[in-house]
Design a protein around this nucleic acid. Sequence first.
DNA 1: CCCATTGTACGAGGAGAGTCGTAGTACCAG
DNA 2: CTGGTACTACGACTCTCCTCGTACAATGGG
Lengths: 118, 118
Amino acid sequence: MTPAIAPSSRALPHPAREEIRLESVLHALSDPMRLRIVRELAGDADELTCSQFDLPVTKSTTTHHFRVLRESGVIRQIYRGTAKLNGLRRDDLDDLFPGLLDALLGAAARQSARLGEG
Amino acid sequence: MTPAIAPSSRALPHPAREEIRLESVLHALSDPMRLRIVRELAGDADELTCSQFDLPVTKSTTTHHFRVLRESGVIRQIYRGTAKLNGLRRDDLDDLFPGLLDALLGAAARQSARLGEG
DNA sequence: CCCATTGTACGAGGAGAGTCGTAGTACCAG
DNA sequence: CTGGTACTACGACTCTCCTCGTACAATGGG
């Protein structure tokens, strides 16, 4: 069961599944930048490095947003070399709040389409 | 189509359906007090006055939270005499974001049950 | 070993949010 | 008109949040 990619020494604190709070998830997703990150993560691939996102903010701010997402339990982050891989915690969220993530992603997609998207 | 209850002179500003933003809705619901209000509104009746809620904050703060909910498009408020009736904007939210409100309410209910509720 | 790449830590500035208290407004019942 | 009820407005306080810049740490390649 050794993973194909060694998860590097640096560890990142994640909340356990039972510790994820709905309020924190909603707060995390109420920021446009973070909602955008989550949408990209849900759409394209399941594993993207931070630098693969082209956000209109500095690297410091990007780090901050990824941390909020991780600490609220929305995403999972692991190091792989100097890069950091980000993935949605679909399994945990679907178990805790069935249908919520899909409803949120659907709502975000609808709004994007409605407002003449990007 | 005249309503049974005259909506009194005082008018309250509400966002039109198209003006409701997902981020604002999520932000509104990310506060425990407001999530609690919305859950009560969804469960019991569709029309409750502000004073029918027994929240552990002062009246000023209660007013503030109801205003945030109204201005984000989550609830509708109309005066009836000195009282103010509050109702969920189910129709508008379901039209804009199908399934979202139910998913949110379900998630909130699940979390309450899981955490040994009140 | 040096260096480029990737991301972090820390501090700061500015804006916003939750809470309260006090004073005030709008409405209804006498 | 008087009084009571229901809610509001405003200012203040405290915290948190988003953003940035600069300086730093961890990894992998030559």
